[in-house]
Design a binder for these strands. Sequence first.
DNA 1: TGCCCCATGTAACCGGTTACATGATTGG
DNA 2: CCAATCATGTAACCGGTTACATGGGGCA
Lengths: 179, 179
Amino acid sequence: MALEHAILTSLLEKPASGYDLARRFDKTIGFFWRATHQQIYRVLGRMDKAGWIRARSIAQKGRLDKKVYTVGADGRKELARWLREPLPPEELRSDLGVKLRAAAFDDPACVIAEFAQQQQWHAARLAQYREFEKRDYPPGAKLSREATLRQLVLKSGIQYETGWLEFCREAQRVLKSLA
Amino acid sequence: MALEHAILTSLLEKPASGYDLARRFDKTIGFFWRATHQQIYRVLGRMDKAGWIRARSIAQKGRLDKKVYTVGADGRKELARWLREPLPPEELRSDLGVKLRAAAFDDPACVIAEFAQQQQWHAARLAQYREFEKRDYPPGAKLSREATLRQLVLKSGIQYETGWLEFCREAQRVLKSLA
DNA sequence: TGCCCCATGTAACCGGTTACATGATTGG
DNA sequence: CCAATCATGTAACCGGTTACATGGGGCA
């Protein structure tokens, strides 16, 4: 399971509260690993109990206390262990593939709209990624190790979205030719 | 949830028993949607109770009876409904992305082997897909509607694997440059 | 007054994974 | 004789999703 390790990584990048993490999972990290705040609080509690992370309560005027978590030695050890443990291959799982095969027993045209919608989503996400790339990794700049790796992950996102985009176009072309 | 609909589609392609379906999910359909036999039996039971499918017990000498399922009118209706219902976007979820960001706080070289392994897996799968394409969809042949759509799905698989393959190479290049 | 943001959780449910269980036939 | 294949399931667990719950501060 990678959520633990995604959180550990995020906390290494910068200590944070559950709430902070939830917002991060709606942004940067969330582009390749999603998590709700409920999930995050649960896992934080588990990791705290296991001694992987430590919480410092930070009093705030008016607001509830903020529990800011930091990664401890055991957490780093666990992350190192996980990094060296091989993962199973990342396999495709696609509702759209099922829909295409199902469409053969119905009117194929009825899924065209779906692919148009998906295309829009992926195009929007891709545009966003390209923005990030332009903003954070300008050509010619010398990047830190951390930044280089973050850029690499962003590239995988760009590739993913580009692939989907192309496929959505191809699918619509084929579906229209069948109508 | 698409498992129900994947099974309905598979049963429309050809009526089958739970065991048959499990084998199909290890092959063709399984390349874009995985399911274990336990899952399949559970869902078959549920769909039978809901009246989407009907079972005919087929006696076999020596063996346990085979329950062959066929899609009924309600099943077709459900599939049609689902086909027209828009899906949420297919979002990236990648353990490898987490590993890359985590690697910044460890020795980046320690994940190189992982990407080499993933590359091998994806290369093998891609080769298999290309075999299928050559075997089932020879250039110039006139394809049925069903075959055309199956080919389209296969193409998405090819694109997926190609994308991963490229990314694995790129990742290894970058990781080596950081060492 | 009402809504969004900050900040933290609990609880129920559900799908997917893993382990366990049974029992006959076929082939090396 | 043993292993693989055919054929069907049950049960426990676990991660992810959705709904519910609380409560103050800032702003229109």
